[in-house]
């Protein structure tokens, strides 16, 4: 603990909104984050589906300005999968602009042509060789994939010469990406005429096991965990291992009432050691409701597992 107190506390980031919220709601969400949330960095941008981009684009300048005026770093996350001409154009346009980019695919790195970037969690950065290579290519921060164990995170964070290593600590975990839209499929629609049906499930569409137990959630072409990742009691160890940024992934909760400002405050309190992890976890559970908490990957287990504090690590 003594060694840890010598380190500055980790910074909090808000990951890109993965779900398709109505544009006005999305704008108001970010305004509130700008005005009220104790968060240092906000990732914007569309990661899942290019068809959603036009909805929020008109609001983006105002949101960027409000966040910056509030002293927050802003970064644009890119699409995880790029195949069409239209998606390619989106990436090259983004790369040509002056905004800082989080690359979620090597396509963006190629388009950036040497400019500094954040290596996003959907880039397969699993080992030292890849870390070295990406840093050499201009990654000033690496946001690690969700699958990594604490040991792997420690190895990579210790080696990262930029000193900026980010790990997701809250929210559903992104597990897979496809060309196929499962949301449209579940509603009996076709991707090309999807009617933006994914807007109906702003926290993800539950995809349960045959026996009714929750397992996954669907968000357009993306598949996420059903459980919410919650790393609270693990924060001191992560900080000691050299993790500099903690990512909160925006969620609305099953009833739509989840307050990310409050969640950020809880993580801040634990990260700065002004609140016990157990107390923060208890309050989080009341915010999350019946959805299970998960943290298995960090403990080298199945991702959907929950290892309680003081449990087997």
């Amino acid at each position: 603990m003594n060694a840890m107190t010598a380190l500055p506390p980790a910074r909090l980031t808000l990951g890109p909104l993965l779900f398709h919220w109505p544009a006005a709601e999305r704008r108001d969400f970010y305004f509130r984050i700008a005005d009220e949330a104790d968060i240092e960095c906000v990732y914007l941008g569309e990661v899942v589906c290019a068809k959603r981009i036009p909805f929020f684009a008109p609001h983006l300048p105002a949101v960027l300005e409000r966040l910056r005026n509030a002293g927050k770093e802003t970064i644009i996350s890119t699409l995880a999968l790029i195949t069409s001409e239209h998606e390619l154009a989106e990436i090259t346009e983004l790369a040509a602009g002056g905004l800082t980019v989080e690359a979620n695919d090597v396509t963006a790195i190629e388009a950036l042509a040497g400019r500094p970037f954040v290596s996003g969690p959907l880039i397969n950065l699993f080992n030292e060789g890849t870390l070295d290579y990406l840093v050499h290519q201009g990654a000033f921060r690496v946001a690690l994939p969700v699958e990594l164990s604490a040991a792997a995170i420690a190895t990579l964070a210790a080696r990262n010469p930029t000193g900026e290593t980010e790990v997701q600590v809250f929210g559903r975990q992104s597990l897979a990406i496809s060309m196929r839209c499962y949301h449209a499929r579940a509603y009996g629609l076709h991707k090309d005429a999807c009617q933006f049906i994914c807007e109906r499930d702003p926290d993800g569409l539950p995809a349960d096991q045959i026996d009714g137990r929750g397992l996954l959630s669907v968000n357009g072409t993306q598949t996420l965990s059903h459980g919410y990742l919650v790393l609270l009691s693990e924060l001191p160890a992560l900080r000691q291992a050299g993790v500099s940024h903690l990512r909160l992934s925006p969620q609305r909760g099953a009833d739509g009432g989840m307050d990310m400002v409050r969640i950020a405050a809880l993580f801040r309190a634990v990260a700065s050691e002004s609140l016990e992890p157990a107390a923060a976890e208890a309050e989080l559970r009341t915010l999350i409701g019946s959805t299970p908490l998960i943290n298995g990957y960090l403990h080298g287990r199945a991702g959907m597992a929950w290892v309680p504090a003081g449990g087997n690590t």
Partner: peptide, 8 residues
């Protein structure tokens, strides 16, 4: 880039 199996 699929973690479904490791998740389970």
């Amino acid at each position: 880039r699929c973690y479904l199996s490791s998740y389970i």
